[in-house]
Nucleic acid binder design. Structure first.
Lengths: 139, 139
DNA sequence: ACAACTTTTGCAACAAAGTTGCATTCTTGA
DNA sequence: TCAAGAATGCAACTTTGTTGCAAAAGTTGT
């Protein structure tokens, strides 16, 4: 296996194409979460918008990336770390941080989401926590 | 003061218009969070899409409603409870629940967001927690 | 209750984001 | 290497969100 992106694709049973590798490389290179737009403008080669939508959806389905909600209606995606290899829906147990200054969104892998007790009758499936504030490099 | 929606508007220093009252009434009537689309189709009278966007923005600014992030890129809004009357940005301290069956989004006012400790160098401003699962009425 | 003033609304025209079907091109496994 | 299946690009379209401006409200003081 030549490089990491190829490896990830093979491990997920996906065919290795220029687009997928390029998008994965972008995720690996950038330490933070990426929105569709970031990917469209950040890829080394130019790919069709539709291809990017479909690629992101595929990656989501395979559990290669996870989506991060935000109040600005822009969904960002980040690489799942190695431990979550389950295909399909999976739980990310870390919190996400969005910096109000540099507006980067990061996974804080070291901070895990605390357990909350739901009222009687509610069943929890997934949990998502996003903190906004000022990040380490912006202080 | 005739009814609740009028009261809320006056308290926030907003002029009372049919559109605003209608949208507020909808929020009061429906127990769950509403997306733009829900409001457009749910109002008694028909209002222009632009009016709804602007009204929601105004309500946000005044702290009448708060927005709830989600991983489906649809932002939903919910009435702020009486205790949070601060104009402008404010922190909701409760978690949000999205039911995967009926796909309603609710504020769980009784469950407050637990405190998390961020890594050194990070400053917290706002915090948001969304749980998905099955709600009480769908079991 | 009315006139003057300020806000809000609706419309039109855009811009951006996301979706679908289909023909072409690329990957993969034998 | 080649056939079968998967991924891509394109076109056309729908949905979502934004801006400027004129018309229609709402508000305030008298």
């Amino acid at each position: 296996m030549i490089n990491k992106s190829t490896e990830i694709l093979k491990n997920s049973g996906l065919s290795v194409t220029a687009g997928r590798k390029s998008i994965l490389d972008l995720f690996i290179a950038s330490g933070n979460a990426l929105a569709h737009q970031d990917i469209e403008s950040g890829c080394s080669e130019q790919f069709d918008r539709v291809t990017i939508y479909r690629t992101l959806q595929t990656f989501l389905d395979k559990g290669i990336i996870h989506s991060i909600p935000a109040t600005d209606s822009i969904i960002r995606y980040a690489l799942c770390n190695e431990t979550c290899t389950t295909t399909g829906h999976h739980h990310d147990n870390h919190i996400h941080f969005r910096c109000e200054q540099c507006s980067k969104t990061l996974c804080l892998d070291e901070v895990s989401i605390p357990i909350v007790k739901l009222p009687d009758g509610y069943m929890m499936h997934e949990i998502n926590m996003v903190v906004t504030g000022i990040c380490k490099s912006c202080r």
